[in-house]
């Protein structure tokens, strides 16, 4: 699904990623952990194609094709999804309108016809139920006046609506209370399957109690310093980042 080879990237002239290697297979969930400033979010943003990030070396293959040459929307249409750490507000654009535009953009890219309005509504209600979101969200402006938890839940809701193949969750758990973590995890788990992959970026082990990863990587100073099974996260919690390096 995703192969990252010797990836180096700069932000504002400063090298943040210093040679990342990572392979994420179809159906796998990998957790990426590491201290602040280690490059976790930079990796997420490079993968989704954000401008202002300059890749200086290395390559990324997504389903065997070079990901770095694709525009952000092309990546999205091919099934790459990023759950943002800080989702932006778009005043006047309802959640429904936003998602309908997104769904239809992706369908258009794939040469499919637009989604039927009633089918879309049905799908929205189904996925909102999954994430225990009130239907009033449908008509609210995107992320405007949402609490931190609501924003994150809305990200996972969008993921559920768009059914991506590769989901990158950038600190989706930060700012969530334990009940919200459970709900969000449930949403993620419902999408797990043999054809979907996840890269879960987090500070805390506790999320991984609910989204159990196949592999855990520790990122430090722009490099993956250690990889292992789900137990590595527990070890990290016990000994700290310094203890596992």
């Amino acid at each position: 699904m995703l192969v990252i080879k010797n990836l180096h990237a700069k932000v504002g002239g400063k090298e943040i990623l210093k040679g990342i290697h990572l392979e994420l297979k179809k159906g796998e969930v990998h957790a990426l952990m590491g201290p602040n400033g280690s490059g976790k979010s930079t990796l997420a943003n490079v993968l989704s194609g954000r401008e202002d990030y300059e890749v200086t070396q290395g390559e990324v293959l997504y389903e065997g094709k070079s990901l770095l040459h694709m525009a952000p929307e092309e990546r999205a249409c091919k099934g790459v999804f990023q759950s943002f750490q800080y989702p932006v507000e778009i005043p006047g654009v309802s959640v429904t309108n936003f998602l309908k535009t997104a769904v239809n953009s992706i369908k258009k890219y794939r040469g499919e016809s637009e989604i039927d309005a009633l089918d879309f509504l049905k799908l929205m209600k189904e996925k909102m139920k999954l994430l225990q979101m009130d239907e009033v969200f449908m008509s609210r402006s995107l992320n405007v006046g949402f609490s931190g938890g609501e924003k994150k839940r809305n990200e996972i809701f969008q993921m559920a609506m768009l059914e991506p193949k590769l989901s990158i969750l950038d600190e989706t758990d930060s700012g969530l209370d334990i009940d919200a973590i459970k709900i969000v995890s449930q949403g993620v788990n419902s999408l797990r399957g043999p054809h979907t992959s996840f890269l879960v970026i987090t500070h805390y082990q506790r999320l991984l109690n609910y989204i159990v990863p196949d592999k855990v990587h520790v990122l430090s100073d722009g490099k993956i310093i250690r990889s292992g099974g789900k137990d590595l996260a527990l070890l990290l919690e016990e000994k700290g980042y310094d203890g596992v390096g």
Partner: peptide, 29 residues
């Protein structure tokens, strides 16, 4: 803002459609 455009593009919209959506939202009232 750039981050608004990027957010829309990450969800599959072209930059044009993203501008359209945001401007429309601005005019909604």
């Amino acid at each position: 803002r750039d981050d608004q455009l990027f957010y829309c593009r990450q969800r599959g919209m072209s930059e044009e459609d993203a501008v359209s959506l945001i401007v429309n939202g601005f005019c909604k009232e």
